[in-house]
Amino acid sequence: MRVLIVDDSRAMRRIIGRILGDAGFEVLEAGDGQEAIDVLEAQTQLPTLACVDWNMPVMDGLTFVTEVRRRPEWRAITLMMVTTESESDRIVRALAAGAHEYLIKPFTADAMVEKLDLLGLLPVSVGEPS
């Protein structure tokens, strides 16, 4: 499975990428929402999951989520906000826009793995020779 990590912080992309890489994901990265759309448009094999920061330059995470949900060909992508935005109304807005889950920074690796479990995205390949 592939994941697209959309975050303007290279350090955060590396942290999330390492957790998801250990969980068996192949990692794609983008530094903002517009770049993420460009990455998606260039893919022949879409990612299963996108982890999306909220506050980014050029195109923010909420706009990106809205855009992904607008395009039927990207409907299968599971969207999880991963952000410092922690007010209830923000979470409600993201869910209403089409995000499936919401993980608030800071978080532990276990919390990220538990969110994958909630989303039914724990790699089916676990147990196979690595």
């Binding site: 995000a99 889950e101 919401y102 532990t108 479990d117 909630l118």
Partner: peptide
């Protein structure tokens, strides 16, 4: 805490 509500709680349940 924020860390505690991140653990296994679906976002819809949180709000």
């Amino acid at each position: 805490s924020q860390l505690e509500v991140n653990r296994g709680l679906p976002a819809t349940t949180l709000v």
